[in-house]
Design a protein around this nucleic acid. Structure first.
Ligand SMILES: [Mn+2]
Ligand SMILES: [Mn+2]
Ligand SMILES: [Zn+2]
Ligand SMILES: [Zn+2]
Lengths: 148, 148
DNA sequence: GGAGTATTTGATAATGATTATCAATAGCAC
DNA sequence: GTGCTATTGATAATCATTATCAAATACTCC
């Protein structure tokens, strides 16, 4: 089942309606691999479809999350971002605090350790968010030169 | 050197001025072990010192962070929170999404793994933020009963 | 101690992201 | 097609954070 089918199935199962706006927002979202804010996604949507409002984009991206195709991420820059989740392995982020560039990182060992920790506290794990902030190789080099 | 001394040293070294407001905000902040928002800290401050404004509290808690006594945390509930850093070991958070209760967790293994990952990507690590969301034992129990 | 100066303060406004409102529109069951 | 209800889009409300600015205050130098 592809992403669009999964979304339509979710919409149907929730008793929601199939609308042109929802389809178009989903298409635009699926067509980018960026980690977009609602504002950015709205801008992308309006390039193709003039009439769609900000509120609709905001509401739809939330629906997409609920359907399991999308995940909220927070890089700490003031606005929530959304990224693909379907057909994408879970990962965390390594973010450059200078230029905003980031890497998607994953370590099964790290995930396993987390689960062990959670179990130790008798919690039931739902999700987690690991963001590592630092300097990318380029920015690290620049900074090293500055201090010289 | 205790926390208050460290703050005064920071203020002096930055060429800033020693004011009654800054001292009072710091005192109130040090007197709680909670993870407070600016709003909450302002409320606490005003219980003792009526005249101190929100903006001053917001500015001062930032200063306290810069001085190394305080750390920003984000539990994803809409407002940034601040917690003690001085005389407190680094730790991450395990947060109950139902009731907001949380545990402070720490694993040297986990920290080490992170550093290895960062090195693999040639990044220079500055900080990291790991928040695990789940259900605390009590809320997990309640939820289990509901589904029964 | 007092004058001069730059910082700090607190009330208020500005900003920006998110959420709520509501009349008009459109999907869906019949 | 009709009727009912969800959805939409423009706009306003909300809320945290940041900016503004005149008045108050801390600090330096005498
Ligand atoms: Mn990603
Ligand atoms: Mn903590
Ligand atoms: Zn960079
Ligand atoms: Zn709980």
């Amino acid at each position: 089942m592809d992403a669009k089918q999964k979304f339509e199935q979710f919409v149907a199962s929730e008793g929601l309606r199939r609308t042109g706006q929802r389809t178009k927002v989903l298409d635009v979202f699926l067509a980018t691999e960026r980690h977009v804010t609602v504002q950015e996604l709205h801008d992308l949507v309006r390039k193709k479809h003039k009439g769609i409002g900000y509120a609709t984009v905001a509401r739809t991206v939330k629906l997409i999350c609920e359907s399991g195709l999308c995940r909220q991420v927070d890089f700490g820059d003031g606005a929530l971002r959304y990224e693909h989740k379907y057909d994408h392995e879970h990962h965390d982020h390594l973010i450059c605090v200078e230029c905003g560039k980031f890497e998607e990182i994953y370590s099964p060992k790290l995930e396993k350790l987390q689960h062990e920790l959670v179990r130790k506290y008798d919690y039931v794990q739902k999700s987690h968010k690991l963001d590592i902030f630092g300097l990318c190789p380029e920015c690290a080099k620049k900074n090293a030169q500055k201090t010289t």
